[in-house]
Design a protein around this nucleic acid. Sequence first.
DNA 1: CCCTGATTCGC
DNA 2: GCGAATCAGG
Length: 172
Amino acid sequence: MNWTDERVEKLKKLWSEGLSASQIAAQLGGVSRNAVIGKVHRLSLPGRAKAGGTTTAARPKRTTSAPRAPNYAARVATRTVTRTAGATVLKEEVEVDLVADQDIELAPNVVIPMSRRLGLTELTERTCKWPIGDPLKEEFHFCGNDSPESSPYCSYHTRLAYQPSAERRRMR
DNA sequence: CCCTGATTCGC
DNA sequence: GCGAATCAGG
């Protein structure tokens, strides 16, 4: 892949925003994190303050959205989205939580964790793959927080995923 | 083991 | 100039 002016600009932008090299590589596509780091050096961009775990970096500004009221009806929309990966056409069903939190009963004071707002290409084996938003919209992203044991979701969303339906819960 | 950036060096 | 391999560190 070529370092076009456009891609270089994006690199500069994302780097200055504090994204990690691997995340930038994922967003640019077609390059490794090494490529990104190498380019950063060649461009003489300012390096990271402290080497090693720059966990401090990639945090998006906290959104000041108020916690949702507890008693919305839980609705899950299922959309079939089509995308291409190379020559392969992938169809996948994505469940969209229109209302993320339903049962506050078991965890009354749970703080809804901030998501890392990762795009599809940024997900790894150990990032939470809980979709957020409408796949058809631009702002669609995934939770992206750490998921223990390489489970598909972070601890928070695992609980939501396993939440028994109201119907099933009635049977208990 | 997971990740991070930094450096080297053959291409 | 590029980036994989490697190193160093959390």
